[in-house]
Each structure stands twice: as structure tokens, then as C-alpha cells.
Amino acid sequence: MNTFLLGATTLACAAVALFFFRYWRRSHDRLFAILAAAFGLLMLERIVLSSVPAQLEGRHWIYLVRLLAFVLIIAGVIDKNWPRRRA
């Protein structure tokens, strides 16, 4: 069941990442590029999670990839809120 759930989530994350990539190409808003990268990382994390045994020591290191994805999202939101210079 878990492998199925991880697989489905992987594919959904990949699709969402592609959507964000397209939003970025259309709007040139950096936030969308960052979100695309974050969802790409979440996809990678799921692939690794489902391919290592559940009892593996140090499995939580994989979650650092997830942390990186969420740090990226925070950075994107901060970047969006940063006062920007006028053109």
C-alpha cells in the first residue's frame, strides 16, 4: 500500500512541478521556478524513500531532501515579499 501511495505521489509531484515550470516560463516570476524545483525535490525524495528498505539505519537523512524542498519554498515566499527595486 505504501509503495503504491509513494508512487502515486511521485507522479502527482512531477505533474505539479511541470505545471509550475510552465507558469514560470509564461510569467517569468521566480517564485514559480522555485516551486517547480521544490516539487521536483519532493518527487525525488519519494523515489528514494520507496526504493530503500524501511528498517534502514539513517533513513531520516532522506528527509533532509524534503527539508531542502521546504526551505526552498520559504525562500521563494521571502523572495516574493522582499521589497523590490523599481525598474
Binding site: N2, L6, T9, V16, F19
Partner: peptide
């Protein structure tokens, strides 16, 4: 694990 993986799948599916 089944519950937490379901929560993540539900979330990303809603967005998709």
C-alpha cells in the same frame, strides 16, 4: 505510514 502517505497524496492530488 499509510495515513501520512495518504495525507501527502491527497494534498498534491488536490493541487494537481
Amino acid at each position: 505510514s499509510v495515513f501520512r502517505n495518504t495525507a501527502a497524496l491527497a494534498g498534491v492530488s488536490i493541487l494537481l
